[in-house]
Simulated scan of single mutants.
Amino acid sequence: MKLEQKEHLQQLALRVREHIVRLSTDGGCFTGASLSCADLLVYLYADCLNVRPDNLTDPTRDYLFLSKGHDVPALYGTFVELGFLDKDRLNQHLSTDDHIYWHPNRNVPGVEFHSGSLGHLPSVALGVAMDCRMRGQDNKVIVITGDGELNEGTVWESLLVASAHKVNNLTLVVDRNHFQANVATEDLIPLEPLAPKFEAFGCEVRRIDGHDFEQLEAAFSALPFSDTKPSVIICDTVRGRGLPSIEARADRWFCNFSSEEVEELLRELHSQEATTLTSETLTVR
């Protein structure tokens, strides 16, 4: 990945995180999980998928299904930065005059399917992937789940069907931030070893750092991993990424900050970003 491309993605992700923080007031949102997913969504929409504001009805476009719908602030922020959504609509968050609320709604351009009740969109994505294949098309079909969402049996049922029918144009991505709601996954229903579980269900698996754009590029550019199996990418991430004061905290699942707290968090976000960029520059030199 070229340095200019990486810096562009980092700046996009920073602006998306700003949107997430600003949405974390006046009713709040699922801040921690949205921050863990921001880099992934930015990479997919900005550099990987053939989906743009001008081709949303084109049946040959790529498809992304956000099954962990509570990450929708990251999706909204990405849509704003890439021209899918007017920034001013974010001011209508949780207003009855708009559809900008805690989970995706298809009335928002770019949202492929409603989500919120966890575990259902892997099956929806599977159906779309099979339809695309029957039409002789080569669309990428990607569905993002949370790691806690993997407790839902429908996720595994969809993979059994995908494996049985050799649906290799379906990719399931796990945002592995190690929390579900307000508890660590391994303290509730342990998931590890996770990759062998997916392999046992007939998938080809890669595991990467979900905040590293070079690793994201290497993994997604290699799709499909197999000619006869669905692909799975486990993205190890940090809940609350970019804000050290709330990172990896069980109590920062849903946040409703005051306007003063939001401004303080924005300052922290920019301070952390400056520290990260300085560190990377020194490493390159």
Rank of each mutant, 00 (worst) to 15 (best):
D147I: 10
H99T: 11
A164C: 07
R133N: 04
V161A: 07
L85W: 05
H93Y: 13
P104Q: 02
S95A: 15
N151Q: 12
V174S: 00
I144V: 12
P109M: 12
V161R: 01
A164G: 10
S158E: 06
D147V: 07
F113W: 09
S117K: 05
V155C: 06
P122G: 07
M134F: 13
H120A: 08
N168Y: 14
V174H: 04
V155Q: 06
Y101M: 13
N151S: 10
A162E: 10
L85P: 07
V143I: 00
V141Q: 03
V111R: 01
G153M: 04
Y101H: 14
G119P: 06
L90F: 10
S163F: 01
P122Y: 01
V141L: 07
N169E: 10
S95F: 12
H103N: 08
F84A: 13
D131M: 06
Q137T: 08
G153I: 08
F84V: 14
N139V: 03
N107C: 10
A129G: 02
I142C: 13
G110Y: 07
D86L: 06
E112P: 09
K166N: 08
V167A: 11
S115W: 09
N168L: 05
V80N: 08
S115N: 11
N169Y: 01
V174W: 05
H165Y: 09
A129V: 02
H165M: 09
K87G: 00
Q92A: 10
R133P: 02
